[in-house]
Amino acid sequence: MALTQVSSNKCAGGFQKVFKHDSTELNCKMKFAIYLPPKAETDKCPVLYWLSGLTCTEQNFITKAGSQLAAAEHGIIIVAPDTSPRGCDIEGEDESWDFGTGAGFYVDATQDPWKTNYRMYSYVTEELPKLINANFSTYPDRMSISGHSMGGHGALICALKNPGKYKAVSALAPICNPMQCPWGQKAFTGYLGADRSTWEEYDATVLAASYFGPQLDILIDQGRDDQFLSASQLLPDNLIAVCSEKKIPVVFRLQPGYDHSYFFIYSFINDHIKHHAKYLNAMPHCTATQTSVQSDRPLGPDAQLQ
């Protein structure tokens, strides 16, 4: 669990750092970026996990999204991992941009040859949080998750599969229903096999339909001029329809003129950090009240699901 600092730059009063470590889940060396706000020097801070999209490394988000000022203002640590294992020498790993390297899809692969390394779901939900909480001054119970495109899909499934684990979730142009889109179908077939029923575990729209747990508050931004929206890769309407039916609160904003790029992310990242800050920085007594209300329920749904 040893961390090696790769870089450290002062940023927005705090530090933007990159670390390298040996991942046990992925069986390779992994890099992740972490922004430490000024508050982190003296106090514990909550952590927002950012999952990037296809082809990205830990660098894209920290250099293009402009999240640091808002993170510094709200006192939030942002951890941005890489999007897949790297250098595992798996055949076909680097053949296409939407599968293999840079396209882990935040699933635990069950198919050879991917199943040894491509365990991004466990990496971002288990190994990475443990590593972060062990090495940085954090509140382990105050974490949230967000992402873009494939990372948006990752953020949604992490939140929907782990009720109560994340205080908040949001996404920018997420792949909402991967089972129904070419990207998702390609990735799921590769990582999970042909049995579509195993895909359902990693599909936000399917997961939302069976979600049972503490109330989520999902913020989704989507550029109207996003080429992948019109190419039916993202399918937000399917998710919204399910959430409307299941009464899962979603605010979905269709932003006219915006595309799928980091220019779009940059434009709305502040709203997302504020959305996370609202839940991550909620007064502890409020959290306590919510907890007690939950524990009053006859059947602990959290326990059931976990």
Binding site: C243, R253, L254
Partner: peptide, 20 residues
């Protein structure tokens, strides 16, 4: 079929969907 929401000023509203 559904609930629609507008946040209006000057006759213009952003395009958004609210599920609940």
């Amino acid at each position: 079929s559904r609930h629609k929401y507008e946040f209006l000023h000057n006759g213009w509203s952003p395009d958004l969907r609210i599920t609940v």
